[in-house]
Design a binder for these strands. Structure first.
Lengths: 159, 159
DNA sequence: TGACACCCAGTGTCATAACACCTAATATTC
DNA sequence: GAATATTAGGTGTTATGACACTGGGTGTCA
């Protein structure tokens, strides 16, 4: 199976943001760009049978190492809001990507860890993921990237 | 009905982006910030019984004026990808916010227009929407806003 | 005018997201 | 140590999203 769907999606003509306040333009551009990057990323993931949320879980769990993470900790680290972590993990467990074990000392807690298979899968995606990131940002210098990151973090810090 | 849900969502500790390439950090921050803004916005819209997509349709149709727009034109102007425009418009039509009429000269085309009720609804939201935009971006100067917008548009232009 | 390609809108079907609620285990208070 | 609160995880239900496909409507070319 080569590439998937044809993917037209010219969506969101940049020009349409004229005539509004700067804050409004900024808001629209952040949301639109975020959606574009997310879509690109999910497009890249499709051949692996993953969605963005599942990839995110794999990435976070790989970062967490052998200790794994409990459901709520995992949920709080997600890139996007994810109220229904349980069933997302259910699906990933069924797919053999993660394993869950209830803790002995606090039996309310369930620790989720990457399986070997999950680990191998995300490792195999790394190269594609890096390529995808570079593609979108290739026109920006390191200074510009720093500026962009700083500005976005300032926005995130507002309440 | 006052405010709705408690909304904890501390999600996405900014610090977690260390140790990766600048492009990666930029990608994560754009996606995360976009999701935050979208969530905020939908939070604000909830009391009006609208979701982000529906608000977006109202906004676009208001801009289009009395001529309205056909389904595909509308879809292409959406801020986020929306493959299932038909049923979104179905719901909005059922709610009395939009009206659809098939064109006489090309009977394939269906024009969607705002109803008076839809128009009044989006007008009544304007003040809240503007407040929400300002809140998130208040810490940025006009120059910084311009810079942010320019950088994001450069990202959007990459294929 | 009949065959063809193409365009627009809509539908069937399945997977996933959202929201409110529930249950079990542990902590806290008296 | 029994009652209560709190915290973690899970479930039921409904709404929404994705994707492939259908089917009518137009144009165009023999």
């Amino acid at each position: 199976m080569a590439q998937t769907s044809p993917r037209p999606r010219p969506r969101g003509r940049t020009a349409r943001t004229a005539g509004n306040s700067l804050q409004h333009q900024a808001q629209l551009n952040v949301i639109r760009t975020g959606a574009m990057l997310q879509d690109d990323f999910e497009q890249m993931l499709a051949p692996y049978g993953l969605g963005g949320a599942q990839f995110n879980v794999l990435r976070i769990l790989r970062g967490a190492g052998a200790d794994g993470l409990c459901r709520n900790e995992l949920r709080d680290r997600m890139l996007t809001r994810m109220p229904d972590m349980t069933r997302l993990l259910d699906r990933m467990e069924r797919a053999g990507l993660v394993a869950r074990t209830r803790k002995d000392d606090d039996r309310r807690m369930v620790t989720t860890r990457l399986t070997r298979e999950g680990r191998q899968l995300i490792d195999s995606i790394d190269a594609d993921a890096a390529r995808e990131q570079k593609r979108r940002f290739r026109s920006l210098s390191d200074t510009q990237l720093h500026t962009l990151i700083d500005l976005l973090q300032a926005v995130q810090r507002q309440s």
